[in-house]
């Protein structure tokens, strides 16, 4: 579903733009990273074994069945719900990408979503995650909007990427929104660099706080991006539309290869996993 952007070009430009916005918006120094503290949904992955099907459903295959071979990005993995690719162990959700021939693909992995099970408009969505490393790994914690009608499709439904990460930049994640006139390569995004550290050596908290007219992106206790309809207007010369006043559902996945990260190389180690300690939603 996600159509990607040219990372090197747009990220730097957008980073500058976002920096400006931070100074011009009403984010004063007393701004708190999180203000919504009423827990309404969570999965702490405390039940060993398989994933709780009352909370999560799966996207399976290579996207062909959905009309999106390579899931729209020339990704290389085949998603399954086998324990080899997704399981709960020691209180942690483990999504494992493997290098293996499977149903015509060279890699397998998993993609979980709360579609139809938990969908909400606004709130604080966060997860505590540790990611793998190496060229070609592309894990994500993200959200898609629920269509108003069957004919409404991406990017009109909106996409909020709370955390995306590329295994060849182990100290960096990015948060992004997609909508009409600002999707794929034109999406509005900002990177966050973990100075003097890496995201693959420990768990970190990735979240958004989302309300009418604003989405704040944070990592641990650092707010690094705040997006508003004004930003969308600025970025799209007024053509873009703020599509984030509708229910969204969450997704967790580990993609392999594809347009954005490029394919794994000889140094990329398989299997590796994304570990998710918890996913929580507040309002």
């Amino acid at each position: 579903m996600k159509i990607r952007f040219n990372k090197s070009k747009s990220l730097s430009i957008l980073a500058l733009a976002s920096l400006t916005i931070l100074f011009t918006c009403d984010l004063d120094e007393t701004q708190e990273v999180v203000t919504l503290n009423n827990l309404i949904w969570e999965d702490n992955f405390d039940t060993e074994g398989s994933v709780d099907r009352s909370r999560w459903t799966f996207d399976l295959g290579d996207g062909s069945a959905q009309g999106l071979p390579g899931w729209g990005n020339n990704e290389l993995q085949y998603y399954t719900d086998r324990p080899e690719n997704v399981r709960v162990e020691n209180g942690v959700l483990i999504i494992t990408a493997r290098e293996e021939s499977f149903e015509g693909s060279d890699y397998t992995s998993a993609r979980l979503k709360t579609e139809g099970l938990f969908e909400q408009q606004y709130g604080r969505f966060e997860a505590r995650i540790r990611v793998p490393y190496g060229q070609g790994y592309w894990p994500a914690f993200w959200m898609l909007g629920v269509p108003d009608s069957p004919s409404e499709v991406w990017p009109f439904i909106g996409e909020i990427d709370i955390m995306e990460y590329l295994g060849d930049s182990p100290s960096e994640i990015f948060g992004t929104i997609h909508g009409p006139e600002y999707s794929g390569g034109e999406s509005i995004s900002k990177e966050y660099v973990l100075e003097g550290n890496r995201f693959d050596t420990d768990f970190h908290i990735f979240g958004i706080e989302w309300g009418p007219g604003r989405i704040n992106f944070y990592v641990d206790d650092v707010l690094y991006q705040s997006l508003t309809p004004e930003d969308v207007a600025d970025e799209t010369n007024g053509l873009g539309e703020w599509v984030f006043d509708r229910p969204f559902y969450m997704l967790l996945n580990v993609a392999v290869g594809g347009n954005l990260p490029g394919p794994p190389n000889a140094d990329t180690i398989f299997p590796q996993s994304m570990f998710v300690d918890y996913v929580r939603v507040y309002n």
């Binding site: 490393y133 182990p170 100290s171 100075e195 003097g196 550290n197 890496r198 693959d200 050596t201 180690i269």
Partner: peptide, 9 residues
């Protein structure tokens, strides 16, 4: 230097 970003693999 202390880079903090070297991971022994």
């Amino acid at each position: 230097e202390t880079l903090g970003t070297n991971l022994l693999v």
